[in-house]
Simulated assay, not measured.
Amino acid sequence: MTKATTLAQLDQLDQELSRLFRQLERYDNAPLNQQPTDGGWTVLQVLHHLILAEEASVGYIQKKLSFNPVLEKAGFRAAWRLFVVDFYFRMPLKFKAPKGVDREALPEHADFESTKAQWESQRRALRKYLSHLPDAQFDRELYKHPFAGKMSLRQMLQFFGMHIKRHQSQINRVLKEVG
């Protein structure tokens, strides 16, 4: 796993994010802030959850690298951990969000354009950060998923994609109800 393949993965994520934004640009803030009848998150709360999850992931990496740790090379175990996350995400079950990215951390009301700008800014900062990391970091278990454990940076980005896909169905369900 190289820096180039990881940044290519980020390019794909950014394309997926652009598709999500194009889908949501058709709505004004009212339906995007309307809570579904099941009491779940609004569309903009889902977006903020995803933003916070990515932000926390990058924060973990930055903190981890600040003390120059010895990092294991990502191999079968890291691939297995990502597989487990993917497996659980494909299950039609609800999962409790970790503290810091749960309902308590989400805004009651938000603006789509500022939420979009926040996420885009965060992604630009992630790209800049990854671009400046030494190549040797990209095949190491540097990221730690809150439930599954240690993975590589590329696997972190794969998780980001899975996470968005998981919540895309929730977004579609809420939009169908409130839109």
Results as ranks from 00 to 15, higher is better:
Thr5Tyr: 05
Thr5His: 08
Thr6Asn: 03
Thr6Gln: 03
Leu7Met: 05
Leu7Pro: 02
Ala8Pro: 06
Leu10Thr: 02
Leu10Val: 05
Leu10Ser: 00
Leu10Trp: 02
Leu10Met: 03
Leu10Pro: 00
Asp11Arg: 07
Gln12Arg: 12
Leu13Ser: 08
Leu13Ile: 12
Asp14Asn: 15
Asp14Trp: 07
Gln15Ser: 14
Leu17Ala: 10
Ser18Glu: 15
Phe21Lys: 11
Arg22Thr: 14
Arg22Met: 13
Gln23Glu: 13
Asp28Tyr: 07
Asp28Met: 09
Asn29Ala: 14
Asn29Val: 12
Ala30Ser: 14
Gln35Asn: 05
Pro36Thr: 06
Asp38Ser: 08
Asp38His: 08
Asp38Trp: 08
Gly39Lys: 04
Leu44Asp: 00
Leu44His: 02
Leu47Thr: 01
Leu47Ala: 01
His48Tyr: 13
His48Gln: 13
His49Arg: 03
Ile51His: 14
Ala53Gly: 12
Glu54Gln: 15
Glu55Val: 08
Glu55Cys: 06
Ser57Cys: 09
Ser57Asp: 04
Gly59Ser: 07
Gly59Pro: 03
Gly59Arg: 10
Ile61Tyr: 02
Ile61Pro: 00
Leu65Met: 04
Ser66Val: 07
Ser66Gly: 05
Ser66Asp: 05
Phe67Gly: 06
Asn68Ser: 14
Val70Pro: 06
Val70Asp: 13
Val70Phe: 11
Leu71Cys: 02
Glu72Val: 11
Glu72Pro: 05
Ala74Gln: 00
Ala74Lys: 00
Ala74Val: 01
Gly75Pro: 01
Phe76Ala: 12
Phe76Asn: 08
Arg77Asp: 11
Ala78Glu: 02
Ala78Trp: 03
Ala79Asn: 13
Arg81Asn: 10
Arg81Trp: 07
Leu82Gly: 00
Phe87Glu: 06
Phe87Tyr: 12
Phe87Ser: 11
Tyr88Gln: 10
Tyr88Arg: 08
Phe89Gly: 02
Arg90His: 09
Lys96Leu: 11
Ala97Lys: 04
Pro98Met: 04
Lys99Tyr: 10
Gly100Lys: 07
Val101Arg: 09
Glu104Ala: 15
Glu104Asn: 15
Glu104Gly: 15
Ala105Leu: 07
Pro107Thr: 12
Glu108Gly: 11
Ala110Cys: 06
Phe112Glu: 01
